[in-house]
Design a protein around this nucleic acid. Sequence first.
DNA 1: AGCCTGCTGTCAGATTCTGGCAGCATCGAT
DNA 2: ATCGATGCTGCCAGAATCTGACAGCAGGCT
Lengths: 236, 236
Amino acid sequence: MSRSERLLDLIQILRRHRQPVSGHTLADEMGVSIRTLYRDIATLQGQGAPIEGEAGLGYVLKPGFMLPPLMFSDEEIEAIVLGSRWVAKQPDKRLAAAAADALAKIAAVLPDDLREDLDATTLLVGPRSDHLEAIDLGVVRQAIRDERKLGFVYRDAEGAASERLVWPFALAFFDKVRVMVAWCEMRRDFRHFRADRMSGLTPTGIRYPRRRQAMLKEWRATLDAPGRNGAKGTSG
Amino acid sequence: MSRSERLLDLIQILRRHRQPVSGHTLADEMGVSIRTLYRDIATLQGQGAPIEGEAGLGYVLKPGFMLPPLMFSDEEIEAIVLGSRWVAKQPDKRLAAAAADALAKIAAVLPDDLREDLDATTLLVGPRSDHLEAIDLGVVRQAIRDERKLGFVYRDAEGAASERLVWPFALAFFDKVRVMVAWCEMRRDFRHFRADRMSGLTPTGIRYPRRRQAMLKEWRATLDAPGRNGAKGTSG
DNA sequence: AGCCTGCTGTCAGATTCTGGCAGCATCGAT
DNA sequence: ATCGATGCTGCCAGAATCTGACAGCAGGCT
């Protein structure tokens, strides 16, 4: 196994362990000496991997994705840049900033002439005409990532308000509105909530008892099934 | 200089030369022997770089972008995936396919658990309500990339049709319509053309005499300047 | 204090990389 | 057909790099 492959493996092993892992354990798993492991960690850190080591504890990899060297065609890079520019114009500030950061990160590692091409990529995203929401969608995305329950107040199409506690698992971006998809504890069913009708967002920190992937899959099945209202009908 | 750095350099040098370059030249530029160069080329090809060598000619790198190892945060990868999903739903078929390819390419190099996360990334893009255009936007994007003149028939808001020959340099994606930005030879000015009002697209193969970056910059300046109509007003 | 752990320096041996050489194949020009 | 330029591969010895072992220091926990 070449050194570069081993470095990717190391990232992968670190990701598997959520708790801190000792260097000795890692060295064993990879079949190298502890000294080499320290060198590998240093190399990865030098490449920007967010690995943190603390004496007495071990190593942790902060959540994130490591991409190996990758080749994209002109059209593929145009698609990524255009898509990121669209995201960068979303009203969700944190996500927009992340899109801008990702683009900057890509631009930073490119040679000058390619960076110019990227800057001058002539696919533009027009201004948006949005129903602005009062809540911070970043909180919703975090709850989805962590699979934790979320409380809020919902005002339905008729203007009636109600308090909800839900298990959020998806966020859909439409042309003008954003919609959270979740299991509603009150209704005991999947429900869709327009972000501009939500308020008083309160993350609970309580994990909900299902995997979001499973709920997403089940929810998609209900969309395809006939005789039952899908995303459009059962809002709130 | 480490070997991996040298490989990136090699890509960069290959990009600079548009014509085929002999291995001997490349080896000189990088300060290594011809034998090592052959090995480096083989390594890059093994990593997926589209380098082609032909006996009697030399090496050419097909256009594209090589990204070195890169680290993204959760939110950054979410932004890229969401953006690419949005692009993948655009009516521009080729661009949509490129977005899907880029996502697949990223997914292919990730370990299984990360790939699942990617598949299950719970940011969805809603269906689109578009004015569908009759033309192939891929032709427009190609003309922009190549900086070549483009001919077509334009039907303005009043329904009057006219033949145009323009220097296209940007393509803007609005919620419902796509707009090509170009210098119009007939009007001798920047003009904006809604894609759904264009027909009879004919790429000319003739290079226009300016850089698209320069035109983009100049056009943007006209948007900011007062007392002059910008993007919204001078359509067609 | 004692233990576990991270981290660095040093150095010899193992591993990999590199350059030179030889040889063959392919393409275009003469 | 011949020739030159070029791509491409195998081989091998020397150079460069990587690796493992050891020693030593520092920080956190019991």
